[in-house]
Amino acid sequence: MSPRRTERLAGALFLLTHVTSVGAVLLYGPGGVDPTRPLAGRTAVLTGALLEVVLAVAVVGTSVALYPLVRSRAAGLAPAYVATRTLEAAVILTGVVALLPVVAVPGSADPAALDPGTAGALVGLHAWTFLVGPGLVCPVNTVVLAWLLHRDRMVPRVVTLLGLVGGPLIGLANLAVMSGLTGTLAVAAVPIFAWEVSLAVVLLVRGLRVPEVAVASLPRGLVAAAP
């Protein structure tokens, strides 16, 4: 696959992460992020869980797609980005597995027969994975990628600054939620949302500005197919 196609794939995957994450939250109902409130019905929760599985795959996919394009510029940061995105996806999937027993039994259309205490604990576990994965791990990989792209001017500075500001901001906001200092602060997610959407647009429309020395060190298949 050529570098340009790889960039477009990464951009499309970034957009897919937002579509699937927002869709899952809406389908779960208020109980998806607040364990004190009820979940939506079985079909809605199962569909939301499927979207979260797609989300986890897309999260890893963004890092795998970007890796060959940036590894020559950051031998340590590029693998760190892949590792933290993979960790984020693993936490997301843990939450999915925790939530499914509340509404379904594998291979059966019968409702789950969990006592309220157990069901509440599993819903609470899902809420914690939502806070830890997208809430605390994602800010780390956001700063890693934003710094890598900012340092080498691979995308416009205004885009990387959104990531460098948005990552720590949402991380601190979620630490405050974890500590019980405040409730969910949706406004704190605006910069990191803008970062990922604007990066996706850059990847889809223009691509990365990879220095010639970096292009020369890309895998032979990518170099041969480069425009």
Rank of each mutant, 00 (worst) to 15 (best):
M1V: 12
P3S: 06
L9W: 12
L9H: 06
H18I: 14
T20L: 05
V22M: 11
L26G: 00
Y28T: 01
Y28A: 08
G29V: 07
P30D: 12
G31Y: 04
G32L: 03
G32R: 00
G32M: 01
V33E: 10
D34Q: 10
R37W: 06
P38W: 06
A40V: 03
T47Q: 09
T47W: 07
G48Y: 02
L50V: 15
V54F: 13
V54Y: 02
A56Y: 05
V59I: 15
G61T: 13
T62I: 15
T62L: 10
V64L: 15
L66E: 06
Y67C: 04
Y67I: 09
L69P: 06
V70R: 01
V70Y: 05
R71E: 15
R73E: 13
R73S: 14
A75Y: 05
P79Q: 08
P79W: 10
A80G: 15
Y81Q: 11
T84I: 08
T84N: 10
R85N: 11
T86F: 13
L87R: 04
A89E: 05
A90I: 13
G95K: 02
A98G: 04
A109V: 14
A112G: 06
A112P: 07
A113H: 12
P116E: 15
A119Q: 01
A119R: 02
A119L: 07
G120C: 03
A121S: 09
G124S: 13
L125F: 14
A127L: 05
W128F: 08
T129L: 03
V132A: 12
P134D: 08
P134K: 06
P134L: 10
G135I: 08
G135S: 11
L136N: 10
V137K: 03
V140Y: 09
V140K: 06
T142I: 13
V143I: 10
V143K: 07
V144K: 06
V144C: 08
D152Y: 13
D152C: 03
M154Q: 12
R157P: 05
V158P: 00
T160N: 09
V165D: 06
G166E: 09
P168D: 07
G171N: 11
L172C: 10
A176S: 14
V177H: 08
L181P: 00
T184N: 11
L185H: 09
V187P: 00
A188R: 09
A188S: 14
A189L: 14
A189I: 03
A189S: 15
V190F: 04
I192R: 04
I192W: 09
A194H: 03
A194K: 03
A194F: 05
V197H: 02
L199I: 07
A200K: 01
V201H: 02
V202C: 13
L204I: 11
G207T: 08
L208P: 01
V210A: 00
V210N: 01
P211S: 02
A214K: 02
V215S: 01
A216R: 12
A224N: 07
A225V: 03
A226R: 15
P227V: 13
